[in-house]
Amino acid sequence: MARINPYTLQMQITRMFEQGQSLFCAMKVQDWLRERNEDPNDYDIIFNQQPAPPGSGLVMVVEIELKRKDGEPVDPWLQSEVNRHS
């Protein structure tokens, strides 16, 4: 069984939503994009709340969706990394 890394971006965003700090989540994702040499102004950031998988110990999980403002597809690697679980 894969060990959950509490420092993944998705887990941090989920915790921020649980603690009522969702206002700051977009800034956190923008910083994450900057660290990967991406311009955050090129992306719309959408947060989707979903029920957590059974056995995870969580009630909900926040899925992060990136959409490029210019209509181009988001790099699949970038999209998968933003929601990486471990």
Rank of each mutant, 00 (worst) to 15 (best):
R34M: 03
Q19F: 09
R36T: 13
Q50A: 07
H85K: 12
L23G: 14
L33F: 07
D42E: 15
V62Q: 08
F47W: 12
E81G: 01
M11S: 14
P40S: 12
D39R: 15
G71E: 00
P6H: 08
N83R: 00
D31Y: 14
E38P: 05
I4W: 13
Q19N: 14
E72I: 01
T14H: 00
Q79Y: 07
E63Q: 12
V29Q: 03
A26H: 01
I46P: 02
Q10Y: 01
A52L: 03
E38K: 15
I45R: 09
D70E: 00
F24T: 07
I4M: 10
M60G: 00
S86V: 09
V74F: 02
R3N: 08
V74Y: 02
E18C: 04
F47N: 11
D70T: 00
G57C: 12
L58E: 14
F24Y: 10
R34P: 01
P53M: 10
N48F: 08
Q79S: 14
L23C: 04
C25H: 11
A2H: 08
M27P: 00
S86W: 08
P6N: 11
E63P: 00
Q79F: 10
L33W: 06
Q49Y: 01
P6E: 12
S80T: 02
E72V: 03
K28T: 09
N5K: 09
R3M: 11
N41M: 12
N41F: 09
Y43E: 05
S86G: 13
P54S: 08
